[in-house]
Simulated scan of single mutants.
Amino acid sequence: MNKVTMADVAKVAGVSKSTVSQYLNKRYEYMGEKTKLKIEEAIEELGYQPNFIARSLKQKRTSMVGIIVANITHFFSTEISRAIEDFCHTHDLHAIFCNADDDPEKEKNYIEMLRAKQVDGLIIFPTGQNNDLYKKMVSQGYPVVFVDRKVENLDVFSVITDNAHATSMAVQHVIEKGHRNIAFVVQPLKVSPRIDRLTGYKKALTDAGIEINSDYIIEASIPDMKNKLEQLFSLEVKPTALFAANDRVFMAVGEFLKEKGIKLGKDLELIVFDNIPFSHLLDSPISFIEQPAAEMGKKAAELLFQQINKEDTPPEVFVFPSRIV
């Protein structure tokens, strides 16, 4: 079968090629409903598929954007990604999602691959370890937005939450309930949210006049976390409250506590910094720091869209407040 062209559609609909082009690009300002209907019926009858490659060459845009997520297993990342995709869908953009697994080499490969595919811009949850590549994109004026994690010494659009302040407020809350032996459990301190949350934890203790005990600060990968928790709960003076720095830490801590028969609300108070989709199903009294993921995702998409459309706005860091639930 011969490939159906725009000229074929125009002939069947009884209109010009430029009118079909306007229809395909959704420029309906001077187009009557009858004309739109004739073009729509012609496209349906002929099975016409627009040539997006040719159109992107003409418009110098592909209408595709890349989203590189640091680790898609975090529910917070999934929520943000959904909000970005929703925005793209309503603005005729196609979103390509990549999962970097917190691996800087994988992230680098995805950035280079997506740019080679001529995507119009990138939204990145950065590993923080490809600074030269980040700087190159910014210096070239390439549309890019960073989400969730800060990159130091780089003037770029960023969307983050108030990690240090929210953590400090949450720890202060359990101090006011009478706790003084409060543990902090986190994955390796390689990215800004984890570092900022530890800063907030230390600030709350210092402000309350509580000495910071390094034995109560557990920094470990998820596979190594159980051994570290064994050491923590083998201390002579055990913690009465524990701060889990994200949802994956929460899962590891939860498995350990269940195995050891440690009861939440009775033996230990738990605070988790992250959005947990099943929190309403839990019987145990747990406090969560909930981030406004949908709002953050929408803002990131808006900022990228503005850059793609050449809106001259200076880069800014947008900080969204979290709330304790």
Results as ranks from 00 to 15, higher is better:
V151M: 05
L154H: 10
D155T: 13
V156H: 09
V156K: 07
S158R: 14
V159A: 04
I160F: 09
T161M: 01
T161S: 09
D162C: 11
N163H: 05
H165E: 13
A166V: 03
A166H: 02
A166E: 09
S168H: 15
M169H: 13
M169Y: 09
A170W: 14
A170I: 09
A170K: 01
Q172G: 13
V174K: 11
V174Q: 07
I175Q: 05
I175M: 02
E176F: 08
K177Y: 06
G178D: 01
H179V: 04
H179M: 06
H179W: 12
N181F: 14
I182E: 03
A183W: 12
V185N: 04
V185D: 00
P188S: 09
L189A: 07
L189I: 04
L189V: 06
K190N: 15
V191D: 00
R194I: 00
R194N: 13
R194Q: 13
I195L: 05
T199N: 13
G200N: 07
G200C: 06
Y201W: 11
K202R: 14
K202I: 02
A204I: 05
L205P: 05
T206V: 11
T206I: 06
A208Q: 04
I210Q: 03
I210A: 00
I212V: 15
I212N: 12
N213V: 03
D215H: 12
Y216A: 00
Y216L: 15
I217P: 06
I217G: 03
I218R: 09
I218A: 04
A220I: 09
